[in-house]
Structure formats: C-alpha cells, structure tokens
C-alpha cells in the first residue's frame, strides 16, 4: 500500500519534471501551443471528471460554461477593460451560470441530469448567436489578447501548466475531503443519503459550483490562448468531446483528464492533417476503450500491471472469511 503510494508520487513527480522541462527541449512554438491546448482541455475535462467521477453527474453543459466565461473576457476586452477586470468578470459570469445550471439540475440525476445540462448548454449556444451586441453574433469576438508577457508562447505554457497543477491539486483535495465523500455517497445511493440527514440538492449544487468554477477558469485560459471566441465554443460537440476525454482517460482518476485530453487534442490537431475523418478515428478509439478498457487508460493500466504481477484484486476472493484481508480499496481510483 505504502509502496504503491511512493510509486504514484514518483510517477507524478516525473511527469511534472517532463512538463516543466518541455520548453527546454527546443520544441517549436507549434508544439508548445499544442501542449497548452492539451493542458487547458485537461483543466476543463477535470471539472467534468470531478462531477462525474465523485458525484455521478455526467454533464453535457461544461463546454458552454467555459464559453460563457470566454465571452465575458471577450466582451470586457472589447470594452477596453484591463485584465484584472476581465478575470473578475469571467469569474462572476461563471459563478452565475454555474448557479443557474446547479439550480436547474440539483433535483435530477443520471440521464435527467445529462438532459438538463444539455438543454442549458444549448440555451447558452443560442444566446451566443442572438445577443450579437454583446457576443458579436455568428462572427464572435476576436483580438482578445492575453495580458503582459503572457502572449509569449512559452510563458503562456508555464502559466497554463501552473493553473493546471493548482486546479488538479484543488480538485484532489476536495475529492478526498468529507465533502468529496458525501458526493460519492450521493453517487452510490441518494435514498441512503437522505435517510442519513443529508440535504441532497444542496450537495449537488455545491458540487456544480466547484466544478463550474474550474470550467470557467479553463474558458479564460482558452480565450487568452486562441484570442478568439465564437458560438461554436459553446456547441454541444465541445461538451461531448469533454465527456469522451474523461471516459478515455478513466473517470474518477487523477490523471485521466490529462490523458483523455492528450488523446483527443492530438487526434483533432495532428491526425486531422493526415486523415479528414478524424472524428471517425476518435470514435474508433472510444469504442475500443469502452470494449477493452472500461475504466479508461488511467483506470485500466494499474489493473493490467497488477494482473501481470499476479496479485490483482482477484487474488483474494470477495468475502473470503478465511483471510482477514481482501482486496484493499483505494480511497478513489487515484492512480496516475
């Protein structure tokens, strides 16, 4: 148990060193930009992962939350407001939008939750088109510059990496807190939680606010990176891709969002220059993962390794009374 923890920490440290050293490998600005895109997608995916993995609430609305935050930055930038105001406005809009999402969805679960988040997302998409005096309509808003030196690709990369580490760490802390345990309780049995005195809707709203805030941060990072926002960033396809990332990477795992975001962004940006049918390629990868590695990459690799070493969880039969220890249960599938 302790050795496994050490291995995990070691792997995490190694990953961080590689990510920190990336600009020193002499890579091009294109590659650095791609790395930033992956990290931003990973922040957004981690917000979906938190809500889905701990809370059991799979959202199809998080792309639209990020877009709302990006629009707030775009609008503020077009008004000539400074970056601090842009950030504050983005946070304010994110909190309001997340609160609306939360209020509308907190009494639902499962597929109904998904439908409500989908509907609110489509509403935001529609507003992005219609409110053209604020959003620029179909054309969106362009020329949204990152403040100060952040427009330098390598500096922006470090900025994004820092925020990625912070949000991932924050979500990890929340996930391992009493609140996180309460969410997993809701995921497993709402009726039991009610009978224990939990105000179920309140917890769902709280979880949505936390998750939505992280999504809004990702929206801000994205709009400063590509300097542009349009209704398509609020489109349902973006939100669907987020869920695909989370499932590919391994729902409820710490590094699943980063792994899933890497796969999707690389397929979308690299493979697409060789094959036109990159969505088909992504679809195939997705189906393969669902068929052969339901727990996603981060969820399945440790299981396979354990099986190879011949001491997987199946080594101890469930409910075996003859031995006092069975399969040790990790707090979460927090395996890198």
């Amino acid at each position: 148990m302790n050795r496994r923890m050490l291995v995990n920490i070691g792997l995490l440290g190694l990953l961080l060193v590689v990510l920190l050293a990336l600009p020193y490998f002499g890579v091009s600005n294109f590659v650095l930009g791609l790395a930033s895109t992956i990290l931003i997608a990973a922040v957004l995916a981690s917000s979906v992962n938190f809500l889905g993995g701990d809370g059991g609430m799979v959202s199809l609305g998080h792309g639209a939350i990020a877009a709302a935050s990006a629009y707030a930055v775009g609008w503020a930038s077009r008004q000539g407001l400074d970056s601090t105001t842009q950030v504050l406005l983005a946070l304010g809009v994110t909190l309001v939008v997340s609160f609306i999402y939360g209020l509308l969805s907190m009494r639902t679960s499962g597929i109904y939750f998904l439908m409500v988040t989908l509907a609110v997302g489509m509403l935001i998409y529609g507003l992005a088109f219609r409110l053209s005096s604020v959003t620029g309509g179909e054309n969106g808003i362009s020329g949204i510059a990152a403040p100060g030196d952040l427009h330098e690709e390598w500096i922006y990369y470090y900025f994004v990496l820092g925020i990625f580490v912070l949000t991932t760490a924050a979500l990890w802390v929340v996930s391992n807190s009493p609140f996180g345990a309460s969410l997993r309780g809701l995921r497993d049995s709402e009726s039991r939680m009610r009978s224990l005195g939990y105000n179920v809707a309140q917890y769902k709203l709280g979880a949505f606010m936390i998750s939505g805030t992280v999504a809004g941060i990702a929206g801000l990072l994205a709009v400063w990176h590509i300097n542009f926002v349009s209704p398509s960033s609020a489109g349902v396809e973006r939100s669907v891709l987020l869920v695909v990332m989370v499932i590919l990477g391994g729902i409820g795992t710490l590094l699943g969002p980063l792994i899933g975001a890497s796969i999707v962004v690389l397929v979308e940006n690299v493979l697409s220059s060789y094959v036109d049918r990159w969505p088909t390629a992504l679809g195939l990868i997705f189906i393969l993962v669902i068929l052969f590695a339901r727990a996603g990459v981060a969820g399945s690799v440790p299981k396979v390794l354990a099986k190879l070493r011949g001491r997987g969880p199946s080594a101890a039969p469930p409910g075996d009374r003859s031995s006092s220890k069975g399969a040790p249960a990790p707090e979460r599938n927090h395996t890198p």
């Binding site: 802390v173 996180g180 345990a181 309460s182 997993r184 039991r192 939990y198 249960a329």
Partner: peptide, 28 residues
Amino acid sequence: NLFRDMTVFDNVRVAARGGTSKARVFWM
C-alpha cells in the same frame, strides 16, 4: 442500501457526518 464503491469504514464515516456541517468540509 449501501455505498457499494466505498470502503466499509468510509460508509460509516459518511453516515457519522450525516446532517452535520462536518459533511460539508471540503478542504480537510
């Protein structure tokens, strides 16, 4: 009606915090 994917200990911990503000602590 138990929390199937959680440990026995965590099941009881969640029960112990039921209806109290302790269940809302998200930083510890």
